[in-house]
């Protein structure tokens, strides 16, 4: 059921849970199957929304300054002065011992067989359209 849809759009994954919930929910009304309408469109809208709300890059890179300051105190937290709180590994820890490589391979590469994708970079070449005030000479 899900294989083809997840290829269409990465945002499908976040929607999947809700769909399954709807699918198995006991409520059955005339609109029960309407969620299937224009799934691709909904998914792509959700994806675009997520893209538009991309967090401030500076925050992504450096984090907020306050956060970096007090992270040291939390680690020494103790319960009843006897046990240390064992926290689940933060996401950062998962990458701490992964491969040290400068290559940047995107997980989802664009489909370069389609004309649409090829057109999206046409103007990067001298054969593409030139801005006003510039020319090949």
């Amino acid at each position: 059921l899900n294989q083809s849809s997840s290829e269409i759009c990465p945002a499908f994954k976040t929607y999947k849970k809700r769909w399954i919930w709807i699918f198995f929910s006991p409520v059955s009304s005339s609109g029960a199957l309407r969620w299937k309408d224009c799934l691709q469109q909904k998914a792509s809208e959700a994806f675009l929304r997520q893209q538009a709300a991309a967090p401030n890059l500076r925050k992504l890179v450096y984090g907020s300054v306050a956060e970096a300051g007090d992270s040291g105190e939390d680690e020494e937290e103790e319960l009843g002065g006897l046990f240390r709180v064992s926290r689940p590994q933060k996401s950062k820890k998962f990458t701490a011992n992964s491969l040290d490589c400068s290559r940047f391979d995107p997980e989802t590469s664009h489909n370069w067989d389609g004309e649409e994708m090829l057109n999206s970079i046409r103007d990067c070449f001298v054969t593409g359209k030139w801005e006003e005030g510039q020319d090949a000479a």
């Binding site: 400068s102 290559r103 940047f104 995107p106 664009h110 994708m117 999206s120 970079i121 990067c124």
Partner: peptide
């Protein structure tokens, strides 16, 4: 060749392995 197109799509003045 497709990887090169991907890199051109990313663009910029420096390609991705040399950013740092």
């Amino acid at each position: 060749a497709k990887l090169l197109l991907e890199e051109i799509h990313r663009g910029g003045c420096v390609d991705s392995p040399n950013q740092s």
